[in-house]
Amino acid sequence: MINGNKTAVRNGKVAVGAILLFWGFITILPFLWMFLSSFKTNAEISQATQNFLPNHWTLDNYKRLFIDSNFGVYLKNTLIITLFSFMGMLLNAMAGYGFAKFKFKGRGPLFILVLATMMIPGQVTMIPVYLILNEMHLTNTLAGIILPGLVGAFAIFLFRQFMSNISNSIIEAARLDGASEWYIFWHIIIPISKPVLAVQGILTFIGGWNAFLWPLIIANDQKYYTLSVGLQLLQGQHTSDYGLQMAGSSFMVIPIVIIFVIFQKYILQGFNVQAEK
């Protein structure tokens, strides 16, 4: 009886594994197809039926990204934006610490206000924010692309959650030793907060790398385009040049997948939303 049960469990596991394998293959198929197609010649890619693997491997599509198209410029802009979004992450961490460890007038209402901004859809704010940036003469500048997304309520919330759990006695001890509040933040709080900084750092990188809506609205000039806006332009200009499009997509997707695989253990643990009991 017990033996029979074990075999049934094992058979069940194999069946589940087979379903997952098939479904997983379908899930990953678009990426495989994208990556392999990016090495195909134009002649091959315009045939009605194609082999999965390229007949003649070529790097031509990738070369054209940088020669015919401005992917070098887009890459530079994307990296600048990503760099600045890390500064935004520090502002989020500061705010999270302020809400977690200080008592001050208006703390409760201000924090609720922060959380309330999470509910506001981007489409409602995009027109007024454009008008505000226009008044500040920041449209069509990198600063205009960076500023609206610099801080985020969800990140502030996560920093506050983590920092609330840091023991007060460490902070009090440092204060008695005469450390300034900023010294405490930089030399005690930031080092303790490494786990949350790791998760936020990866999410910040992914967010900056994938940024689309603000660069699309604020940048009129190709020299301020990011990779995703540039890729969207490339699709419009080279409608049927699928080799080039797949190279551009691979160029955006592959680095993120690599970073994700390296740091996955930090990201995957950050998704427990169960209500606190």
């Binding site: 678009p30 197809w33 994938n210 689309f212 990779l227 995703s228 699709q235 955006m252 997948v257």
Partner: peptide
Amino acid sequence: MRLVFYTPSITNTVAVAVVWTYM
């Protein structure tokens, strides 16, 4: 498999939209 199913979520929407348009 957890990694495999999560991958589409982190990739750029524009890039995957371009890929799916081709598919």
